[in-house]
């Protein structure tokens, strides 16, 4: 019974995560300017990847496989924002201006 429940939960996580990945990709295609697209990449990097990996962890159980999945997740959580930040800073240094709705000096 518990096994089946875990199985169902892991399928939900896996498919939900894949849907979030697809949504993020659509966002990358749909958003109007470079800086907005970065937010869509964040969706892929965090919730999409997290849910897929968590779903696989539930399938793996308490084994070395799960440890490796956790390591993959750990690397993604730390390298994802760094890569996004590097992209944003390089774009700003090269003089790419963001589209702003109602600019404020804040």
């Amino acid at each position: 019974m518990l096994d089946m429940l875990l199985d169902i939960l892991s399928w939900i996580l896996l498919l939900g995560g894949a849907l979030f990945l697809l949504t993020g990709a659509i966002g990358v295609l749909r958003f109007p300017d470079f800086y907005s697209r970065l937010h869509a990449v964040s969706v892929c990097d965090t919730l999409g990847a997290g849910m897929v990996l968590l779903g696989l962890m539930l399938q793996g159980g308490l084994t070395l496989v799960t440890v490796k999945l956790m390591l993959i997740f750990y690397f993604m959580v730390f390298s994802g924002p760094t890569a996004v930040h590097a992209l944003a800073e390089a774009a700003q240094v090269s003089g790419l201006d963001p589209v702003e709705d109602d600019p404020e000096d804040g």
Binding site: G17, L21, G24, A25, V28, F34, R37, L38, V41, C44, D45, G48, A49, V52, L53, I72, M76, G80, A83, V84, L87, A90, A91, S94, L96
Partner: peptide
């Protein structure tokens, strides 16, 4: 160029998964 690098980065994440 940055859009392309960004797409490459995202495809990398997707490939891992």
């Amino acid at each position: 160029l940055f859009d392309r690098v960004m797409a490459g980065n995202m495809i990398g994440t997707l490939t891992v998964l």
